[in-house]
């Protein structure tokens, strides 16, 4: 039971990173690798704020931190014309130093005995603390989801979607492509930063290495969700992020609770799950071709 609750809690928080990745990979169609850096950046900023006694301000700071990371990547891409993947890697690498600076040179900051956002809101709710935490995470997810769904219905949001869909058309329809790309990547990384911050609060520490593989985790959630939800609207995309993130956590929990895999096998499992999901169209293609060839041989 506690395993299920823990998975649900993690699934909800990781929905935010899935949404961030969904915006960069799916909506903007930009492979943005900043995620691994902005995730830890959010984490570092949140823990620094919480330690200083400002857990609620930490939420805004982690959002801002992520947005700033996104801004740097976006400027590298749009103004210096560095390829998307490389821009992300550059930001991510640079952030390593910045994150260490925020965490005052130590690679691990504990939040033991420090009041976090979960402590504050959890105490207000008349229920078991673990359940209250899920409730709080759910509120964050719902607010993010509503904001994004509404935002993508405005002119500004529509422009971001159009740029991801057909950049040439966007240019000839008088959109400032650079501006909207920058905005999109900032929103995406702000969500990822917030996700990092909440994870720090949830697990009770910030760690330099927690960013490793975060991109794959987010992408896995997006892909798994899309396998269940066929519609391709923004609302459907957001719901598939939520669903995918929770399912992904349950798969991992199951894989580990069977004791076939040790806990440190998580990353490999994530990579394999994403690889399988990404390979499905290719497998389908080979299968169809194989059947067509077989028919020819019999004839």
């Amino acid at each position: 039971m506690s395993l299920a609750i823990g998975s649900l809690q993690l699934g909800l928080i990781y929905t935010l990173i899935a949404m961030g990745i969904y915006i960069s990979f799916r909506v903007l169609n930009i492979p943005d690798l900043t995620a691994e850096g902005s995730f830890v950046f959010g984490m570092a900023v949140m823990s620094a704020s919480a330690v200083a006694g400002h857990p609620i301000l930490g939420i805004f700071f982690s959002l801002l931190a992520g947005a700033a990371a996104g801004l740097v990547t976006a400027l590298l891409q749009t103004k210096l014309l560095i390829p998307a993947i490389l821009s992300g890697i550059l930001t991510m690498t640079g952030l390593y130093t910045i994150n260490l600076t925020v965490m005052q040179g130590s690679s691990n900051v504990t939040l033991l005995g420090v009041t976090t956002i979960y402590d504050i809101l959890g105490d207000l709710l008349p229920m078991d603390f673990a359940i209250a935490k899920i409730f709080v995470s759910l509120i964050f997810v719902i607010i993010a989801m509503l904001t994004l769904v509404l935002f993508f219905k405005t002119n500004c949001g529509l422009c971001i979607r159009a740029i991801g869909d057909n950049e040439m058309m966007a240019r000839s329809s008088s959109m400032s492509v650079d501006l909207y790309k920058i905005l999109g990547l900032m929103i995406s990384n702000a969500l990822i930063g917030l996700c990092g911050g909440l994870i720090a609060c949830d697990q009770g520490y910030a760690d330099m290495n927690s960013g490793v593989g975060m991109l794959v985790v987010g992408l896995a959630a997006v892909i798994i969700g899309e396998a269940f939800i066929r519609r391709r609207t923004i609302l459907a995309g957001m719901i598939s992020c939520l669903l995918g993130s929770i399912i992904y956590r349950f798969i991992l929990a199951l894989a580990i609770s069977t004791r076939i895999f040790p806990a440190y096998a998580m990353k490999l499992l994530s990579a394999i799950i994403v690889t399988i999901a990404l390979a499905l169209p290719a497998v389908k293609y080979y299968k169809e071709n194989y059947q067509l060839k077989k028919r020819n041989r019999h004839a």
Binding site: K153, N155, C156, L158, C159, A162, M169, S173, S174, M175
Partner: peptide, 29 residues
């Protein structure tokens, strides 16, 4: 395919074009 965004609806494409002289950014598209 060059002048339209393939994954957006007809109405959304027209909305983008309609707003191009005076894009009020946070209004409903």
């Amino acid at each position: 395919m060059r002048g339209t965004a393939p994954n957006l609806t007809v109405a959304e494409n027209l909305a983008l074009a309609y707003g191009r002289q005076n894009r009020k950014n946070l209004n409903w598209a």
